[in-house]
Design a protein around this nucleic acid. Structure first.
Lengths: 207, 207, 207, 207
DNA sequence: GATGAATGAGAGTTCATTCAT
DNA sequence: TATGAATGAACTCTCATTCAT
């Protein structure tokens, strides 16, 4: 016969502990990748007991996936309203792309360490995780393709295999992001985005 | 005091065993990635004793790195003669790019499984390996940049930050390759290359 | 956030397990020497899991050294008060020597099996351990020498190289102890000590 | 149908190889004790193949025992003529002891490294080896006892338990030898022997 | 007879997971 | 609910020994 207040306190405590573990795991994964850290490293970072981990997650994969789901939700949430307004000129398309890219970049930079970890490690964990990761990419590819088709059919983009081209765009954006996050590119995000958008709209070709 | 013939035969036998292990490891890594397989899986696939592995390699990382070095040598070898002739028109530049891409694609397709494994797992093994991997990418980025600069200064490419743009090109190419190798794109390599080159030269913009 | 009671209980449990392992190791080493036994033999004797060993000791050397340190502390402790009173006649010197020998013998017989193991195996483990063992002997040699010098300078022992003679005494005593512990001498300790002391004071020479 | 000459040559070659291994093993054991070295270390030192070891010895114990048997034969050989002449005065007894000790010391110093290894490691190898080692000591103890009994019954040594006293003598001699061989005593052997004989004949007691 | 590549049994060690407190 | 001592399966790696050459 536990009082309502007591139950609520217990739940809150549990939630707090869970968050402690998630944050600790994020730091640990960011520092050492997915494969190297042991459960012991995570609980040490979280300052909780070894058993506490297993009250909250089934194994390392589980806590990693939880972090990934949070990350994904956060990212996807940022783009739910994107397809609302369709551009009606190249200039508008460009502006919309730049603005979307900037919002995206901000999100990624905010969670830079985890973003890099996911990009690197997601495909190496197991089949199901790899699929989850490519599904996320696919969402962005489809979004890009949707706008690209609109642009093509309205004559402000050249006819092309929108499926392939949208993925090429996503690919170059992802690659650049990773280089930036890994510190292999010094330029600041805005510069990167400008250059990428120029490239995506005009290629290397002479104006 | 061994006969020369004996020593030679021994060497050959040893080399044969080593190759056996390398090929087995390649199959195992291709099938299950780098992290999951145990040494036992490799020796079982190679049909040699556990001890034989350790006579030839120090650990799993060592055999993986050996495979990678072979792969890299093979790839780099393919491109040692590339910078010989510089294009003198957009058309020539395009043709050269297409031809180079096709040669590259052939190589990658030839070793498709290992190529995919390296692309996925290299950054997750350790710092030194990650660096090795980004060095390889860097080589191709620098080659691309060299041609891009030539094109820009000769007026058949628009002025741009060649450092960033060359990486964007490499990024989209690598991304497409991975999608293709992973079976996530059905189109055949030639179609892919054509579309990629159109994109790289013109972006999405209307001609 | 653990209760104080819990922490104490845990500590006690851990200490109990550690003791279990130390006692088991003592039995195993006494039975089979240092080199032959495997960690598996020790944990089997202790009835604990293999992993439990590694929670408490780093390796076989570590647990052996711990046992040795306990043994040494015990032995040395027995002699901390020895140099308090200096004998003022041959008879007193003899009585003091006999009494000290008997106390020592009692200690050694009490831990007879470990004592024999240490005497045999200590010099064969590694350099550091060998040194530890000769340091222990050195302590006793120095104690013997201290008394011998006192005796010499007071005229109830003949002039001699006290450094060498004190070691000769320790040597014969240690050798006799080992023979006794190994069951190669049947006589009882008191008889042994009497004979040794007669020998040490008079040699074989005619009274 | 092998010629006699051929057979003889083969035998000689085999004997040479065997000696090569024995000498190499002696160096290796002297350097690192019995337990640490592996067969591979011995064959490397001998510059012969791994298989060659097994054509000549069954295992590490076997080659160690062979070395020990050679050592023992050498030592025992030195003393076969010892009991020929019995001393007829204390002075003669002393002189005989000193001379025997010096011969013994010379032999031991000649094979100093192996002697130290045997003294340290023999008791730790297995039961049979330990017995072999104590048998060797026993021989010397019995020899000492034989002379001691003669001396006692002729009145130039005091009555005593000759069994125990002879072992006490052997013990102090062995202990001093080990300290000397291990470099823990700086004095030269002659000084050591003189001091030991003084001690054995007179103890510490005042002349 | 000599060789050294190949072997695999068995040792050490780690670490995810359980469970009594 | 939280804990951390205890566990043992599963792994890596070594090395004595064999055997084809």
């Amino acid at each position: 016969m536990v009082s309502e207040t007591r139950r609520k306190k217990d739940e809150e405590r549990k939630a707090r502990t869970r968050r402690l573990l998630l944050d600790a795991a994020a730091r640990v994964f960011a520092q050492n990748g997915y494969h190297a850290p042991r459960i012991a490293d995570i609980v040490a970072e979280a300052n909780v007991g070894q058993g506490t981990f297993y009250r909250n997650f089934t194994d390392k994969r589980d806590i990693f996936e939880t972090l990934f789901d949070e990350f994904q939700a956060d990212l996807v949430n940022e783009f739910t309203d994107m397809s609302a307004h369709l551009p009606s000129s190249v200039e508008e398309y460009r502006r919309a792309s730049a603005s979307a890219s900037r919002r995206m970049a901000a999100k990624i930079v905010e969670k830079r360490e985890l973003a890099l970890v996911f990009a690197r490690e997601a495909p190496t964990i197991d089949h199901r995780f790899a699929e989850k990761w490519s599904d996320l990419q696919e969402r962005f590819a489809q979004l890009a393709r949707f706008f690209l088709e609109h642009a093509t059919s309205n004559g402000f983009a050249r006819p092309c295999d929108t499926n392939l081209v949208s993925r090429a765009i996503i690919g170059s954006a992802m690659y650049m992001s990773q280089l930036y996050l890994a510190g292999q590119i010094e330029d600041d995000p805005d510069k990167l985005i400008d250059e990428l958008i120029d490239f995506a709209f005009s290629g290397i070709g002479p104006a």
